[in-house]
Every structure is written in structure tokens, then in C-alpha cells.
Design a binder for these strands. Structure first.
Lengths: 290, 290
DNA sequence: TATTTAATGAAAGTTTTCATTCATTGGCGC
DNA sequence: GCGCCAATGAATGAAAACTTTCATTAAATA
């Protein structure tokens, strides 16, 4: 396949190249090994066969066969290649020329997202979060709403909540105005709106009307002084810095997923199970390659 | 001797500290070994006794005695220490304190997202990322595609790219099958697919067909051995651990936004400007309330 | 269903690596 | 000169790492 496109790639990072190249012919178990190694490139050069087999659940023999299948003489050969790669990388040091410029966007956005997630974690009020989860879980029917990038968040929220058994609709602007769709709204329902800059008047109107009709209103926004906050029953303030020149909604994604999990916490065990599995992953030991 | 002076030093770079400490009692040969190792700290963790003895002219026994003399259990102990030091140095980006060991869903999901973003940043291949940006920017027309949660990503991608002046369509399953919509596809176009577990056959078929029609194909997936990888021109592998029991796509959100930024890098200045503003935010000056 | 093929782990075999023992060398004081 | 001792390397032993073989099981094919 595409020699022209992959030559550089293959030369630079041999392991990844070979895995992709022979990817189709790898057995399931070998795939697990491949993924583990790629996900732990930092550690890989130091791991012995035994360690790899323990962490991936495959037998030592399978590890060797994997190395041979992707073209190395054996595991020893693979390891030597990894060591070489590591040496090269260190040797070249911070001399990253062109790749610095290209790598830069990824690094910058990543750090921005990390920052926002961290800030959100620090600032979201626990009891408010809990209250929102309660309200959404208890609602008869849930409507989500947003404009611009927030529309995607609204759709995403609807998708996630639906998967967890809630009755949800995302208010769209496809056929009729969102406000018209609110005729179906009744007391006992809830509306979850997303309001990020540039704030739109329409969102405020939807929230106002929803409230008049007796529904519980919740807004996810980026600052406590956002216009929507004073109109709703509950507001979750998420850190969304940098949204004027990029659109990373990573922090909101996190909040949304956490809400889903909290709601699913009806089946407490399930939620706790999820949390413990997350912790396992974070502990480092992805023996479970998930 | 000066415990106070050497504690930090010894703790940080054990080898150098120990050598200095026991320097007086080292034999001539051992001194050669010490000098060699210190001069080749990069290599040291990977050298076997035999290699060290060959390069220094000392016998293997002397190498072992050297390690013991400076306080290690044996050469194995010395090597382990070197490996640890190297690992530490590389993994210096480890800020995530286990402080938030909370049982709260929000904390757990946040940390998972952080982890995935970090892992993605470490593993995404720079040249591949660059290549993808090039291809997408240069495409005549762009189609995005995904099923399940990936459908949202496809829509989001279409939205983001559209905002930056590209001609994009998200292939939906709304009216006709995605493959039917490919009749409009021509050489020079590009297809950007998202393929996350559970992988669907349909996605593979779309990619296959797109390629047959001469379009450039790109897939964003969660592992290098995912079935789609072998079918496309370019693959971006993003860390998405924990997706079996939650749906945080934060890392993909980051990659997507970075791509947008890289594409906009035609207008280099604009991209650099964005990066510098991100850095300002991270520097802590949220003076600009953005 | 019968047959073949591929995948896999247990276990045996091989090589490499590490540690110890022991004999030799060379310096140094008596 | 003689004995003592640290230093050293060769040889040996022990352990770990790596590879192969082989029997079993699961999957694919006829």
C-alpha cells in the first residue's frame, strides 16, 4: 500500500510502521500486544518478554511470534529496534525543526484542553452537579438545546442520555424554530441548554419560555455571569477558555459524560464499577487493554 | 561524610553521587568504568556487563565488583537504577496528582480524559499528523463519516472545517445509505472517517469504496490495529481508553481542533497567533477574559 | 459433519546475562 | 628475597531472558 506515503513514516518509527503493514495478518492476541506496546512506547524498550506477556495476558510464546510476524528476527530484534529509536530520539534532542511547527497545534490544543478540564474540576460545585443529575434523572422528558457549536453538544447530550434510557429530544432548527417545538413541553419535563459565546438571544428565549411552562431548566455555560445563568434553575459553569479562536469542548464533554455516569448511578453498582475501572486504567496498568 | 550535601544529588542521579562518594576507594580499572558510564549515560541503561567490559577493557568480574563497590547489590541493581532514572526523566510530564482520588464521577471522568489526551499527545506521529493536515487542506471536497458516537464526531468535524472555509459534507444515514452518497465522490476529494469500537462493517465499506474511487482516505481510530487502518492512506491513532463504559471523546476533540488549526496554518500567522494566545492563557494570565 | 488450518499456552531447550570462585599478577613493606 | 594483599581476569555456576517444540483448542473450509 501507498509506498510513497508511508516510506518516511516507516523509516522513522519502525515499530508503528511494521504493525500497520502487517496489521491485517496479526492474530487477536498479537493485536493486543501491538496496541499495548504502541500505547507504552516509553516503557517498551525496558520490558522483557515476561513482563509484556504478563501485562497483555498473552503467553511468552505469543509475544515472540508477534515480533517475528511483523518482521523482526525475534523479540530481541524488536527490542533492539526500540532501543535504537529511543537513542535516536534522545540524540536528536530538542532540535525538532519543521515538526515543531506542525506538532505545535496539537500540543497547544492539548494543553489548553487539559487546563480547561482541570479548571472545571476545581470550580464545579459538587452539590450543584449532584442537583442537576437528580433533576435530569427525574425528569419526565428531557429536551436539549444549543446553537452553533453548542448544537453539537446538545445532540451529543441527547445521544448519551438516550443510550442510558432517558427520553430525550434535541431541539433542532431544522424544520421549525426550537420555541415552536416547546409546545410539547409540560411541567415535570426538563430542558438542558448549552450557552457558549457568542451567546444567542434565542437560547435565552427558549429557556425563559421553558420555565414559564413549568419545566426545570438547566444551562451549561462558560462563566457564572453569562446571561443565561439568571434565567435557569441550575447552572453548571465549565471552563472554556480559548473558545474564541479554537473550539475545544473537551471540558464540556467531560462534564456531560460525568452527568451520564451520575445519572446511571441509580444502578449504583454500575457507576462505581465504571469508576473503579477508570482508576485501574489510570493506575497505569492497562493489563486490560479495554 | 556530608550527608546533607549529597542527599539531593544522590537521590536524583544516584550513579554520579555514589561514584563521587566512593571515588577514593575505586581501583584504577573501576575508575575507567566509572568514567565510561558517566560519559555515556544515554547508553548505559542498555548495556550488558559484557558490553561494558569490552568497551572499557576491564573484565566482567571487575564490572560487577565496581557496581558492588559503589553500593549497589550488583550490576543488575545498578542497571535498574539507571533505567529508573531514565524513565523518570522522560515521564516528567506527570502532573496528575492522585489527589483527586475521589469517588465522584466528575473527577473520575476528568482524570480519564486527561490521561487520554496526554497519551494521545505522546503517541501521535508528527509526520502523519502533518500529512493528514496537508491532505485535508488540499482536498477538493471533504466528506466526513462515522457511526454511533463517531457520527457526532463526523458532524463536529464537518462543522469545524466548514467554519474554516473547506467544502465539507457529513455523510449521514438520514435518507440514503452513506455509500450511495459517495456517487458524488471524485478523485481529488478526501474522506475522513471515525472508527471507534464497536467497529462497524459499514465504515470499512465506505472507506474501501472511497479509495476505489480515487479519493484520499483518512481514519481517526483508537488503535493501530483497528481494522480500518489497513484500508486507508492515513490513520491517526488516538488514545480512547475507557470507551467501553463511558464515551469521553475529549482526546479526539483535541485532535480535531488541532487539525483545524494546522490547516488554517496556510495563514501561518493566524495559527501562530492562536498558539501564542493559548500559551498566554496557560501562563496564567487569564487577564484576558477571552 | 469431517478435515484442515491457525492460534495458543505449557514446557522444554538455548542463549545471554549476571555473580562468584579461584588462581595469577604485581606492588609494597619487612 | 619473602610474604602479604589488593587488583584482575578466566572459569564456573546460577539465573534470567529468549526461542522452539508440541499438544490442545478453536475456527475455517470442504
Amino acid at each position: 500500500m501507498k509506498k510513497q506515503a508511508t516510506t518516511v513514516e516507516a523509516a522513522v518509527s519502525g515499530l508503528r510502521g511494521r504493525i500497520v503493514e502487517h496489521g491485517a495478518s496479526l492474530s487477536p492476541q498479537q493485536r493486543v500486544i501491538a496496541d499495548y506496546l504502541l500505547a507504552h512506547l516509553e516503557e517498551a524498550p525496558f520490558l522483557s518478554i515476561l513482563e509484556v506477556s504478563e501485562r497483555t495476558g498473552a503467553s511468552e510464546a505469543t509475544v515472540v511470534r508477534f515480533a517475528q510476524r511483523i518482521g523482526y528476527k525475534g523479540y530481541a530484534g524488536l527490542k533492539m529496534a526500540l532501543v535504537e529509536a529511543l537513542r535516536e530520539e534522545r540524540g536528536s534532542g530538542r532540535r525538532t525543526t519543521a515538526s515543531a511547527a506542525t506538532q505545535a497545534p496539537l500540543a497547544a490544543v492539548a494543553r489548553l484542553a487539559q487546563h480547561n478540564i482541570e479548571a472545571t474540576l476545581a470550580s464545579v460545585d459538587g452539590s450543584e452537579f449532584e442537583a442537576v443529575a437528580q433533576q435530569l434523572a427525574g425528569a419526565d422528558h428531557l429536551f436539549t438545546f444549543g446553537l452553533g457549536i453548542s448544537a453539537h453538544l446538545a445532540d451529543l447530550a441527547a445521544y448519551l442520555f438516550t443510550e442510558h434510557g432517558l427520553r430525550v429530544n434535541s431541539l433542532t432548527t431544522r424544520y421549525t424554530s426550537p420555541r415552536e417545538q416547546l409546545v410539547a413541553l409540560r411541567p415535570g419535563d426538563a430542558v438542558l441548554a448549552f450557552s457558549l459565546p457568542p451567546y444567542s438571544r434565542e437560547t435565552l428565549e427558549v429557556l425563559r419560555e421553558a420555565r414559564e411552562r413549568g419545566a426545570t431548566t438547566v444551562v451549561v455555560t462558560d462563566r457564572a455571569t453569562a446571561p443565561a445563568v439568571s434565567l435557569v434553575d441550575h447552572a453548571l459553569t465549565v471552563s472554556c477558555q480559548g473558545m474564541t479562536f479554537t473550539s475545544t469542548t473537551a471540558a464540556i464533554d467531560v462534564v456531560l459524560n460525568a452527568l451520564v455516569m451520575a445519572i446511571g448511578a441509580h444502578h449504583r453498582e454500575e457507576a462505581l464499577e465504571a469508576i473503579s475501572r477508570i482508576n485501574q486504567i489510570l493506575e497505569g496498568d492497562s493489563s486490560l487493554v479495554d
